[in-house]
Amino acid sequence: MSLLRVEDVHKSYGDERVLEDVSFAMDPGDVEVVIGPSGSGKSTLLQCINRLTEVDDGEIHLDGEEIHRMDENELRRRVGMVFQEFNLFAHRTARGNVTLGLTEVLGMGKREARERADDYLSRVGLANQADSYPAELSGGQKQRVGIARALAMDPELILFDEPTSALDPELVGEVLSVMADLAEGGMTMLCVTHEMGFARSAASTLTFLDDGRIVERGPPEDLFERPERDRTRAFLGRLTDVHGGT
């Protein structure tokens, strides 16, 4: 059974249709990369999946269970999210960012939470920055804390919302390599990103979203080498120019 199944999802903000008839499914361990021009509904799609935004119509199933019949906090515990703007809790240290969910949502004891936080921080290469506040970290370090924060909750699926778009170019690599490690380790990931190198090497499926609709979806090599649609070809061509694909 698929871990995530999105069926006929529609979403509008007022008169503006953001998602139209979006359907796809992911199996455990899949790494799905969603690309598309800005305003195509990529971020909205992610927010619908952890219910930071509610869909107008359609169903989303997590592990066979319709998410709108679930407690939303339970859903969010099972679906991690990494933000473009990091959104680290500004008043807590790197460690504090990770432990908050552990103690308040999972009900862990302080010491256990602390050990687990340190473990996950060291997995993303930040063992020495555990006591630093977000303002004292570089963008790449912040985003790695963001990933550790999501990861420590032991989610079934992690959503990445353009995790490298707010980063200076020289800091993108450290975040991508953490993500690549995760993909390697079998984590199910749904990533909105324009890092074509990552899409090529780590993605199991590439989805091209435009104007709220899925234009084309398939293994990345297919979309890169033999796109069926001209729009896909044009968009990928422009992306590869800007972000580099090889």
Partner: peptide, 26 residues
């Protein structure tokens, strides 16, 4: 920043928990 509460919600905190542990301390 509203992103702070959104992040708290994304981790699974309730709205009240997010206000108490994230918004109010700041």
């Amino acid at each position: 920043d509203p992103g702070q509460l959104r992040a708290a919600r994304a981790v699974g905190l309730t709205r009240l928990q997010g206000i108490r542990h994230v918004v109010l301390p700041q």
